[in-house]
Design a protein around this nucleic acid. Sequence first.
DNA 1: GTCAGTGCAAACTTTTTGCAACTAC
DNA 2: GTAGTTGCAAAAAGTTTGCACTGAC
Lengths: 163, 163
Amino acid sequence: MGESDKLKETVKQIFTEYLNQHGHRKTPERYAILDTIYSIEGHFDIDTLYSLMEGQEKFRVSRATLYNTIVLLMNARLVIKHQFGNTSQYERCYNRGTHHHQICTQCGKVTEFQNEDLQHAIEHTRLRSFNLTHYSLYIYGLCGKCERANKKMQKNNIHKKEK
Amino acid sequence: MGESDKLKETVKQIFTEYLNQHGHRKTPERYAILDTIYSIEGHFDIDTLYSLMEGQEKFRVSRATLYNTIVLLMNARLVIKHQFGNTSQYERCYNRGTHHHQICTQCGKVTEFQNEDLQHAIEHTRLRSFNLTHYSLYIYGLCGKCERANKKMQKNNIHKKEK
DNA sequence: GTCAGTGCAAACTTTTTGCAACTAC
DNA sequence: GTAGTTGCAAAAAGTTTGCACTGAC
């Protein structure tokens, strides 16, 4: 059994436990969604997930069910939600290293990076009467590519007004 | 002149400079929007801003103009955008101490807090080919109030299923 | 058999866009 | 005078909701 399958098995068990504990039904749709999500490496939005499940041999599920199920998955701590841009972005979070997000304000590219010191600093911050479950750090700025592009534009004096 | 008026003068100048530099017009709407925003202490969304400007003796502006102008203000580094919940939240950011956000996953309450060590750690993180302009740290969890409420519920065994 | 869960479509909310009128320059 | 801005209304995009049907228990 590959690493990926092992992971899928584990999260399936966690989800089953969660569903049992909360008196929810164990429908094939829910497991199909979980399985698909844990096949995706990075971020995804509902629409992407919908297309993925439509295209594959997998179960086809409605958007409504996707929205419903993803709430359960978030509660079960198997998925987290991000909100850069206009669409909600999700990502699986079981057994994924903590990482932070760099977002280019120009091209919108999102890059993940890890930094233990940073992670440590955040997790050990004393909070007044607040019980931390998770966090998101979004760093905005210009990615190398966009910055170089801008410099070139400035040189050529093409740039006069922004959009 | 009060502190608040002094601040408003300053940001007005910054905005004027920004508009000049980018060849944008200095319309009364834009200044009225800036002025209203710098009267608001915490976060706000477009709808709140719209109501505020409608109710006051101030200029009434359309939502379209609010959306347009707020983009300019973000570029001028006078406003930043947050995306907790479903609506985009904004806040003025000139001369406001850096702060982080605690968000209660149950009641949705957002609290700001400051922490110099954390700030330092984030700002001095080495990023590969990325030019940081600003960042947002969102810490999710349960606020004291909700946590106490939950504990009480558990004790009384009222809680069986989540919503 | 029952009721939670599903699919579908309609409704709703937030944001964007097209266009005529306006006004800063 | 001209082109950037505005307001309005329509459209788009994302998400939620109501309801009849289905299937997990």
